[in-house]
Design a protein around this nucleic acid. Structure first.
Lengths: 164, 164
DNA sequence: TGTCAACTAATGTAATAACAGTAGTTGCGA
DNA sequence: TCGCAACTACTGTTATTACATTAGTTGACA
C-alpha cells in the first residue's frame, strides 16, 4: 500500500526533481493536507466553513469601518468569485451587515456585527489550535522560522502582479 | 470603537503572532497567490483545469496499471469529492479510460490513454514553468532548500491521521 | 448640461463540488 | 449456502463556484 510506494530511484525524464519543484510540492501538500483536517473541524465546532472565516477575519482586521466588496475580494484567500452571494449567506446568518457608503452610492461597506465578532473570535481560536496541532507541531522551531521567513513575501504583495 | 481602538496598538490579544502562525500564513498565501496565477494559465495553454492535471499526474505516476477510484481519491490534492464525475469529464475528453479490474467486478481501473499522456506531458511542462516563475524565482536557493526540507513530511503521509 | 467610459455590485445561468443515499459485489461466518 | 456487513463506485439532489451580463453610479470632458 505504499503511498508513493514505488519510489523509483531513477529520475523521470519529464519530471525533473528541481529544488523549487520540491519546495512547491511541499507547500502544496502542506496546505492541502492541513486543510483537509482543519476545514471539517471548523465546520463541526464553529458551524461555518473556511470561506466564512476568511471573510470574517478580513473584516475583523479591517476594524470598525469594514471593507468594500472589492477590497474584501482582493484580500480574501479562498474566494475568487461569488463574493456577493457568499456575503449574502453570511449576512443571512447575522454575522455581517451591509451598510451604505456615505459618498458613493455604488458601494457597500461590509461590517462585522457583534454576533459576527463573537463567532469570529471563537472560530479563530479553535481553528488556530487545529492548525498548530496539524501543521505547527510537525516542524521544528528552526523550520518554522525558515518557512515563515522564506514565504513572507507572498503575503506582502498586493500590488505586484508583474512577474516577468 | 471598539476592540482595536482601545487595545494596545501592537499585539492583538486574540491574534497572537506565534511562529507557527506566521509559517502557516506563509504557506497559505504562497499556495493561494501562486495558484491564482497558475490555474488560469493552465486553462489557457492546456485547455483544462488543475483538477484534471492532478488526476492525470497521479495516473502518470502510477504507470501502466493505473489506479482504482479510491486510490485516486486518496492521492489527489484538489479533489475531495465528486471524483466519479470528474473522471467522467476527463474520460469524455478522451484523456483517460476506465477498465474492468480482473478479480473484482466492483472496481474500476482508471488508466491514461495515449492522448492523455501527451496532454499531461505538455501541460506538466507548461505548468512547471509557471510555477517556477511565480513561485520558485521569488525565493533564494537556500530558502527553497529550507522550505522543501521542512515541508517534506507532508507528502509522505498517507496513513498518519493520528495527530494527538 | 450631455455624453460616455470606467466603476461597483448584483444577477442569470451553467459548471462543479458536496452530501446523502443506492446498486451491485465480495468475503466471512453461521 | 445463506445471511450480512463491508466494500466500491455511481446516482440524485442541493449548495456553491465560475463566468458573462446587467443596472445603476460616478467622474471627466466636450
Amino acid at each position: 500500500m505504499g503511498i508513493v510506494g514505488d519510489m523509483t530511484n531513477e529520475e523521470d525524464a519529464s519530471r525533473p526533481a528541481t529544488l523549487w519543484n520540491d519546495a512547491w510540492r511541499g507547500v502544496l501538500f502542506a496546505t492541502s493536507r492541513t486543510l483537509q483536517v482543519a476545514e471539517p473541524e471548523l465546520i463541526a465546532t464553529a458551524g461555518f466553513p473556511l470561506t466564512w472565516l476568511d471573510v470574517l477575519a478580513q473584516l475583523y482586521d479591517a476594524g470598525e469601518a469594514g471593507l468594500r466588496m472589492q477590497e474584501l475580494e482582493q484580500r480574501s484567500l479562498f474566494t475568487r468569485s461569488g463574493l456577493t452571494r457568499l456575503v449574502d449567506r453570511i449576512e443571512a446568518a447575522g454575522l455581517v451587515r451591509r451598510e451604505a457608503v456615505p459618498g458613493d452610492r455604488r458601494g457597500v461597506q461590509v461590517v462585522l456585527t457583534e454576533e459576527g465578532r463573537r463567532r469570529h473570535d471563537a472560530a479563530f481560536v479553535g481553528h488556530s489550535k487545529v492548525i498548530e496541532r496539524v501543521f505547527g507541531r510537525r516542524l521544528t522551531e528552526a523550520q518554522l522560522r525558515a518557512v515563515a521567513e522564506a514565504l513572507a513575501p507572498f503575503w506582502h504583495d498586493d500590488e505586484d502582479r508583474a512577474e516577468s
